[in-house]
Nucleic acid binder design. Structure first.
Lengths: 168, 168
DNA sequence: ATAAACTTTCAATAATTTTTGAAAGTTTAA
DNA sequence: TTAAACTTTCAAAAATTATTGAAAGTTTAT
């Protein structure tokens, strides 16, 4: 396969994966484009490459910066802003884990804790089932949270080394 | 907090979490409702409880069965079908991991492998960057895949026991 | 100060996803 | 059979989400 075709395929696959995981398809595609680009790109170049509008490009780039996945770069003597992606895949994974933990896992843990305090007739099967489900989910979410916490601090090789030992 | 209010809050939170992770909100809500219900429920009851239409309820229930998260139950001497959710949270996590691995991770791994075979001028920075990114993602995805594989086979306590040892 | 180069905003529009509900389909009992 | 009870389908409508593009805003050089 030729590079040009491979790039298109990669961008498409990354976009699809993103949309399946609740990430805007265009955002994932812009990220993909920057990931495989050796040089930082301008808004203009990104617009052309992906056939998207200026407004869309601008908002998407802003979001990606908010996720900590890309950065702006200024070139000496140039007015234009250039964008480039962190190419370290472990950093990317950590960054995504960190943001989703903060944006989604933590709010859910908060709600679950509130729900643990539900009151009522302790003999009511409805209440018993409810409390059991909430407690079980809470426990699982807590373990996920701790594991992510470890991952955030860890070096890639150490993390996978440790986790994959589970096979022995 | 009263049980009735807590239920609503739980259903809402579960629905929101689902939608953030690419799962239809209604589907997550139906799942939440069944999770906290000690008894199996009929389509009718689910429709009323969540104020959704018959068609929506039917499709959503079918999807949940497809995900292996709920099952039909037949009660002796009754025409109606009842639905109930597996209450074991570890089973739920495994089931979701299994389906998403199959539906999303595996297709991506397949594409990444195809993309590894890209050809071109080995001195071209574009090609070098592309190959590096694809290889790195491939490696990470492979590790995730192996870890999920282990999780699918594992007992909850053993799995978390092993993974959380990483802290010591 | 001016204007060119560039970035951001946001109301309108388009695309996508979800939901509805009535009609068609199926199963069971008599 | 027939009809009642129940389930499924799917085209149309509604709701949600993403995108456009032109106007407004900002920065820099002169």
């Amino acid at each position: 396969m030729e590079l040009a075709a491979a790039k298109l395929k990669f961008i498409e696959a990354w976009g699809k994966l993103g949309s399946e995981w609740g990430i805007n398809r265009t955002m994932a595609q812009v990220h993909a484009l920057l990931l495989i680009s050796p040089e930082a790109l301008t808004t203009e170049e990104i617009m052309e490459n992906l056939s998207i509008s200026r407004g869309n490009a601008n908002m998407t780039l802003r979001d990606l910066i908010g996720w900590g996945l890309i950065e702006k770069q200024h070139k000496a003597g140039e007015r234009k802003e250039y964008f480039f992606a962190d190419k370290d895949v472990w950093n990317i994974a950590r960054q995504v884990a960190k943001e989703r933990k903060k944006r989604e896992l933590e709010p859910v843990l908060k709600v679950l804790n509130e729900l643990s305090a539900v009151t009522g007739d302790e003999k009511d099967p409805e209440l018993i089932t409810f409390k059991k489900s909430v407690a079980d989910i809470n426990k699982l979410a807590g373990n996920v949270d701790k594991t992510l916490e470890t991952m955030l601090k860890a070096e890639e090789s150490w993390f996978w080394g440790s986790v994959l030992k589970v096979f022995k």
